[in-house]
């Protein structure tokens, strides 16, 4: 089956992202397709390539990246909501340029896109599961 995931919380503060990651990993292992993971609210912080956890802790950002969730065109399907991301200081190269900001912090395994991607995930997937606070 095609499953999509919505994550409403950032890493470390809440368990939501960890649970969603374990769920996604198990779904892939069972032969299901993760159509898209959509990061919303503080969930956008899961995409920061500057995350540096202590050595004996899990790296949640790298965990997500390791699942290598991509579409047929090779684009990442770890999708960060652009509106939620911009207001929280999460930018990719394109958004940094557009907004005149001299840096970007989105991990290459993720991509920034609009809220329509969440609706589309709901339409295209057999199931959509929300993880939050």
């Amino acid at each position: 089956m095609k499953i999509s995931i919505q994550i409403n919380e950032g890493p470390y503060q809440h368990q939501a992202s960890d649970t969603a990651y374990q769920f996604a990993k198990a779904a892939i292992a069972k032969g299901h397709e993760i159509f898209r993971v959509f990061f919303y609210h503080d969930g956008v912080d899961n995409a920061s390539r500057f995350t540096v956890p202590p050595q004996d802790d899990r790296n949640i950002v790298n965990n997500w990246a390791s699942l290598d969730i991509k579409n047929a065109d090779g684009e990442p399907e770890l999708v960060v909501c652009v509106a939620a991301a911009l207001r929280r200081g999460m930018l990719d190269e394109g958004e940094a340029g557009k907004n005149g900001i001299d840096g970007n912090n989105i991990h290459p395994a993720f991509r920034i896109s609009g809220l329509g991607q969440l609706i589309e995930a709901g339409i295209q997937s057999d199931r959509l599961v929300v993880f939050g606070d």
């Binding site: 409403n8 919303y40 609210h41 509106a83 939620a84 609009g114 809220l115 329509g116 969440l118 609706i119 589309e120 709901g122 339409i123």
Partner: peptide, 17 residues
């Protein structure tokens, strides 16, 4: 949550669901 939920609903309006 309430504000950003409303932002999703506004986008959802364009999808004919």
């Amino acid at each position: 949550y309430a504000l950003e939920s409303l932002e999703v609903v506004l986008i959802a309006a364009a999808f004919d669901q």
